[in-house]
């Protein structure tokens, strides 16, 4: 009765989030006196799969069937449940990201499990099985009891630090027991974002709001993001105005992020915006209005004009880096 963790790959590579999941599962397994099995779907080299053992997997089940390239939710969920049954896993851990959110509910129904999504810490207790998650988009926490024998959880990003362990694993090819009729979606086109730091992966995020005044004034923030290897984000009015793409909108109805450092320029900090960024480790606010609510959520702040402060910060960052 191992713990099963689904480790997603991106073009054959794992990301830090995958290792967070494995470390989390390893900590749960240790408390339960069992081991971690990872399921990998897609073509991943053995040398990459072995990296998972560094974080605590004992076994990796690998599915390399090309039909899964479409990320078909129905077929993938079926495969995950087949792996859980083969391993006798009662606890299944997925990432709380686009794919994990899509698969976990299907997996839970299929294996008759209770589901809790966006879990932020190790279980509060195992008997009864209670986990902690954020609710009301970061405005509160809840402890939730899973009343079922099988449990499915998705782990929020950046809520568990990867821990390197000395471990070794076995890699097995796994037959997911799916048929062509399980594949229900056809991919017509795939566009990968290249050369940019992904907002959801970024350790540092540079973000602008209405105080940037127009879509033409973002050169400074882009330069700062380049210098810091940061992702770019914006508040809702900015994406509504079309100054930036809606894919950069962070907040209650946009993306929820949790970087180490969130730099907010010209963002007043409406409660809906704070809901999307409040899990950031450190928040910095630059705003001309000293009453702006963003300063209540921020750790460091400057009351002032963004167009004065941004060039100064760029200079100071360059100096620090040199």
């Amino acid at each position: 009765m191992s713990i099963l963790v689904y480790t997603e790959n991106w073009d054959g590579k794992f990301k830090k989030f995958s290792f967070e999941l494995v470390s989390y599962a390893a900590a749960v397994a240790k408390q339960r006196g069992t081991t971690v099995t990872a399921l990998s779907i897609g073509k991943v080299a053995d040398s990459e799969l072995e990296k998972l053992s560094t974080y605590g997997t004992k076994k990796v089940l690998s599915i390399t069937d090309d039909r899964f390239n479409s990320l078909d939710n129905k077929a993938m969920s079926k495969a995950i449940v087949a792996a859980a049954k083969a391993e006798g896993a009662k606890i299944i851990v997925l990432a709380h990201n686009n794919l994990g959110k899509a698969l976990a509910p299907r997996v839970a129904v299929r294996i008759q499990a209770g589901l809790e999504t966006g879990v932020v810490a190790l279980p509060v207790s195992y008997d009864p099985f209670i986990v902690k998650k954020k609710v009301f988009t970061g405005k509160a926490f809840a402890e939730v009891k899973l009343n079922t024998e099988f449990k499915v959880i998705t782990l929020a990003q950046n809520s568990f630090e990867p821990v390197e362990l000395k471990n070794s694993e076995t890699i097995e090819t796994f037959d997911p027991q799916v048929t062509d009729s399980d594949f229900t979606t056809t991919v017509k086109e795939t566009n990968k974002v290249t050369g940019k730091v992904l907002l959801t992966d970024a350790e540092i995020v540079v973000s602008g709001g209405r105080g940037m005044k127009s879509g033409d004034n973002w050169g400074g923030l882009e330069e700062m993001a380049d210098l810091l290897g940061a992702g770019m984000a914006c508040s809702r009015p900015v994406s509504d105005e079309g100054w930036r793409s809606h894919t950069e909108h962070v907040g209650q109805t946009g993306k929820i992020i949790a970087p180490n450092l969130y730099l907010a320029f010209g963002i007043s900090g409406a409660i809906q915006h704070l809901g999307g960024v409040s899990s950031s480790k450190v928040i910095v606010a630059v705003n001309k209005d000293k009453e702006a609510p963003i300063f209540e959520a921020a750790d460091y702040g400057i009351v002032g004009d963004v167009f004065t402060v941004i060039p100064q910060m760029i200079e100071a960052i360059k100096e620090m880096k040199s």
Binding site: E8, L71, L99, T185, V187, E189, T190, N191
Partner: peptide, 11 residues
């Protein structure tokens, strides 16, 4: 949206 890009699907 997928993690790291976007796709067009027919279903």
């Amino acid at each position: 949206e997928i993690d790291g890009g976007s796709q067009v699907l027919s279903v």
